[in-house]
Every structure is written in structure tokens, then in C-alpha cells.
Amino acid sequence: MLTRRVIHRSFRGLVSVPKPRTPEEMAQDKEEAAKLAMQSIKDIGSMFSNSEGKGDDTEPIDSRPIFKEPSRFATLSLLHQGQVLNELQQMYDKDWHKLTLEAKQLGYYIGFGNWGSRDKFDNWNKQEPPYDLPYPTPSKLQTNDPKPQTLVHPIDPPVNLALHPIRVDQFNPKRLDGVTKFFIYLTLVVAAIALYRDKFIGEAGRPLEIVIVDPYEEERKAEQARERIEEDLKARLELEKSKSRKWYYLWIK
């Protein structure tokens, strides 16, 4: 339910330009990216692994610390994120007057905080224009006092959030993360080895096939073959016997 805001409009304009990042901030970004990559690998692993007996990974967690410190939500596994989201959604389904400040802040962080696809949106809890508004800031309006017959125009040029400096890296296909690069290079190496084998070694260099032999099956097949041979032999003898009798044998008797 708490999906991120989806941007539908294409555009060229920019909302606002963030400050240049210091080397410390860049190092911190790298560290966070490494943490996220590890978390992603864990999440992928948890999808495939049989987690029976692992205990804590699949057990519900105490969500109170997450409500107190919303930034911890980003480090949870998918399963536990789902648990916290469910708890929060149950609160949102009821009267909003009864919501605690913590529940409100956690929901806002999950929706618009600096994690996941909004990783670099560092001003999410400040009184500044967010980086993903569908209009440029400061806002330029046609008029402050529109009449019913005033014509409404779409913002021109429309705002293209994918070109915002904060998101350029995310949408840059040339800058891939380390894990993706590893798998791409691995695929290329395997393809090159396969190509080399196809061209220069051929079938002689094919991997040794491991054949698993079942002695009982072999014995059964041999028995069947033996029975078949015996039946054939018997049939042939009977045929020969019947052919060997002449018509006059009966007459002689």
C-alpha cells in the first residue's frame, strides 16, 4: 500500500540543484551502497533458501524499535519489512486522529524517506522542496487568481525527474553496480570459453559424461534378452521341425 510515488510525466526541466558532495559524503554513500548490496543478496538468498530451522530470520520481530527509529526499516529483510508494513497499515486503516507521532513518521519515512529508490533524497525530513515534485521550484504560475474561464496549460517544458542530478546515477545504464557487473563479466567469460571449445576443440573436448549404471536394471535387461533368444530359438526349431515333415510320411504310416 505504501508504494512510492510514481512519476509519469516526461520532462527536461530540473527542480533544484543539490550541493556538491564532499569526499566524506561520497565515502559514506559507497558504504551505504555496499550495505544495500549485501542486504539485496541476503534477500535474494532468503527467497531461494529453505529457511526451516534458521529461527530468527522467519520469526516476527519486535517492531517497536523500528517505530522509534524509522531509518532501521531500510535494513530489515523483506519479510520483516512486510510485517512492519502490515502493522502500520492496520493503524492507517483506523481513525487517523488516534495515530501516534511515531506511526506517522514511520509511514512518511517509508513513503518518502531516503532509502531504496530515494536513497539520495537527504532532505526528506527538512523544510525544503522535495527532489521529486512534478513542477519546478520556485513555482511559476500563470496567475494567482484564476477565473473559471482561465485556460490551464501543462508546465512547459515538463519536469523530467529521471534527469534530476540526484537521480542521474540511478538512470545511467553505463554505471552498473558491482554485483551486476560481476554477473555480466561471468556470462561473457563462460560464453568465450564455450565459443573457444566449439571452434578449436569440438566434440573430443566435451565434458566427461558421468553414466550411472544400475546393476539390477542391467541384470533384468540381460534376463529379458536371454528369454527372448530362447523363445526365438524355440520358435525356429518348431518351424524347422514342421518344415522337415513331408506329405508322404503320413502315407507311409
Binding site: R9, K140, V152
Partner: peptide, 10 residues
């Protein structure tokens, strides 16, 4: 919401 705010009037 995105569409409603993407015009030159509030």
C-alpha cells in the same frame, strides 16, 4: 496528484 500539480495553476 502528480498530474494535477503539473499545470501552471494551483
Amino acid at each position: 496528484l502528480n498530474n494535477a500539480f503539473a499545470y501552471d495553476l494551483v
